[in-house]
Design a binder for these strands. Structure first.
Lengths: 164, 164
DNA sequence: GTGCTTGCAAAGACTTTGCAAACTT
DNA sequence: AAGTTTGCAAAGTCTTTGCAAGCAC
C-alpha cells in the first residue's frame, strides 16, 4: 500500500526520545507518563483515550483517566503519537512508529476500521490553495468514508475486523 | 476562487424544496422547522447549532435547543444544508445554496474563519484509494489549517473577520 | 381524532479542572 | 526542600432523550 517514494524515517528509540523530550521541556519523567507511553506503543493500531487508560493501567494500575488526558497533548507534541480526528465519534490516536509524512485515512463504514494511506500530494494541495488565499499551511487532513465491498457481498468482514 | 468547470446547480426554491422533502418523508411541516430552515438560509457563512438556535428564535421564539438538534439531521439529509466538521470544536453547518460538488475547507489558525474551496479531485482520490482497498467511497473531506500571512505581518485581520 | 412534534429538564458522553497528597529533581 | 504531577471527584461542554402537552394532518 505504501510504495511511494515518501520518506519514512524510522524512529530509533522512541521511549528514550520521549524521556529526552520531557527533560528538554522541563517536564518530569513519572511512572504514569511512561506507562501511558508504553501502552500507546504496544497498541497495534488506532486507540481512544479510554483504550489507552485501560492498557496503561495494566502496566501501572495507579494511572488515572485525568493523567491520560493530561499526557496526550505531551505525547502528540513530542511527535511520538499522532492525533486522528475522524469527526463524530471520539478522537483516535496512533503511535508514530515511523516519522510519517502525509497520511490520509479511509474509514470503513461497515466495521469502523481506520486505514492509514500515504497521500504525499496533500502537501502540494495545501500549499497551492493557501497560496491563493495568502496563507501558510500548518496541517491538513484528508479522510474518505467508504463501504467494504467484500463485507457487503458476503456479510463477513474478510479483513478480520469485527462487525459490531 | 471558484473558476473550475465544477457543476454548480443553483437550487431554485430551497424553502419549497424543504417542504416537499418533509412531505415526502411523512414529516410534518411545523413553524419551528421552518424557522430553523429560514435561519439557516439567512446565515452568511458557517454556523453552529447554538448560532442557529439564536437566529431561529428571532423568527419564532418558541424554538428550543432540542428542536434545533432534532432538525439538523433532517436538513442535512435533505441536502439543503451541509455539515462541516473541522474537528476539535463543535460541528459547523452551511446552507447549501448551490448544490455544490466537492469542497475542501481552509481553516484560518488566526481568526478561525472557514473558507470553502472547490476540490473536484477529491472524488478521483476517493475512488483511487478505495479501489486499492476494495471499498466504495461514500464521502470525503479535505481540510487545511493555515496561518494568515497579512494578519501575522500587520496584526490586523484584513479580511474583516475578527481577531478573537 | 391520531400520532408526530415540541419544550423542558434530566441524562449522557467525553474532557477539563480544583485541590491536597505524593513524587521527581 | 521546592515545585511538578497525581488521583479523585466535581464541573464543563455539547448533544441526546423521556415525558406530557400541543399541533399538523
Amino acid at each position: 500500500m505504501s510504495n511511494s517514494a515518501t520518506a519514512s524515517i524510522e524512529i530509533e528509540n522512541p521511549r528514550e526520545t520521549f524521556k529526552e523530550f520531557m527533560a528538554s521541556k522541563g517536564l518530569r519523567v513519572t511512572n504514569q507518563r511512561l506507562a501511558i507511553f508504553d501502552a500507546a506503543y504496544e497498541a497495534e493500531g488506532h486507540f481512544t483515550a479510554e483504550d489507552l487508560l485501560d492498557q496503561a493501567r495494566k502496566l501501572d494500575d495507579s494511572v488515572s483517566r485525568a493523567t491520560v488526558y493530561r499526557s496526550l497533548p505531551i505525547l502528540t507534541e513530542s511527535g511520538l503519537i499522532r492525533e486522528v480526528d475522524v469527526g463524530h465519534d471520539n478522537k483516535y490516536y496512533l503511535a508514530n512508529r515511523q516519522a510519517q509524512t502525509f497520511q490520509a485515512q479511509v474509514i470503513c463504514a461497515d466495521c469502523d476500521h481506520i486505514f492509514e494511506v500515504d497521500a504525499p500530494f496533500m502537501e502540494w494541495y495545501g500549499k497551492t490553495v493557501c497560496g491563493k488565499l495568502d496563507m501558510q499551511p500548518q496541517s491538513q487532513r484528508l479522510q474518505v468514508v467508504a463501504g467494504c465491498t467484500p463485507f457487503r457481498a458476503t456479510g463477513v468482514c474478510t479483513r478480520g475486523f469485527k462487525t459490531a
